[in-house]
């Protein structure tokens, strides 16, 4: 401890026994500065993203149909594509199940997932059960969405997408 009157000198205050501490052996950190390594990559990704959006915007026009008319039901009224799976489910089961219980359970399951998962390790083989359940649910949602968005026509009948595609983005 530095002496207050003379900071160059140190006083001995006491002697303590040597401690033995178990410490994890540390590897030297393999890190890089974000500039330029990380930021340049981010700039490339941002540029590519904007380029894709511009390309889409030049190629395809956003749809604009006739003015909204509550008295004129179109041949097929579809929800946006990300809700097409729920709409497909709606045609099979009670609206209470398809509209409230299923999406509610999905959100609850997603939210609780990290707290339900008690497995050790991040690899897929470390958590086979959870990955299987999750994959089955995601696939079910994907297939329902695909059917609802691409394979449904007037009165929600089955229409092959290559015959007529009832899909508006």
């Amino acid at each position: 401890m530095p002496d207050e009157r003379n900071p160059e000198r140190y006083r001995l205050l006491g002697v303590v026994p040597r401690e033995i501490e178990v410490r994890k052996k540390q590897e030297p950190e393999d890190t890089v500065f974000i500039w330029p390594h990380f930021l340049v990559r981010h700039a490339v990704v941002a540029g590519a993203t904007i380029a894709v959006v511009f390309l889409l915007a030049i190629t395809f026009n956003a749809p604009l149909k006739d003015m909204a008319n509550p008295n004129l039901t179109p041949p097929v009224a579809k929800a946006p594509w990300y809700f097409a799976g729920l709409q497909e489910l709606l045609s099979h089961v009670h609206p209470m199940v398809a509209g409230i219980l299923a999406p509610g359970a999905a959100v609850l399951f997603l939210s609780a997932l990290p707290f339900l998962d008690r497995t050790k390790g991040w690899r897929i083989r470390d958590r086979k059960m959870l990955v299987s359940v999750f994959t089955v649910l995601v696939l079910a949602g994907f297939v329902l969405t695909l059917i609802g968005a691409l394979f449904r026509g007037p009165e929600w009948t089955w229409v092959w997408p290559w015959k007529h595609l009832y899909l508006e983005l």
Binding site: P63, L64, K65, D66, M67, A68, N69, P70, L72, T73, P74, A77, K78, A79, P80, F83, L86, Q87, L90, P95, A98, G99, I100, E168
Partner: peptide
């Protein structure tokens, strides 16, 4: 956009 597409998609969606 308040066109037929918008109106009926939201009508279907909000009926839930």
């Amino acid at each position: 956009p308040w066109d037929q597409l918008a109106f009926w998609a939201i009508t279907v969606g909000t009926n839930i």
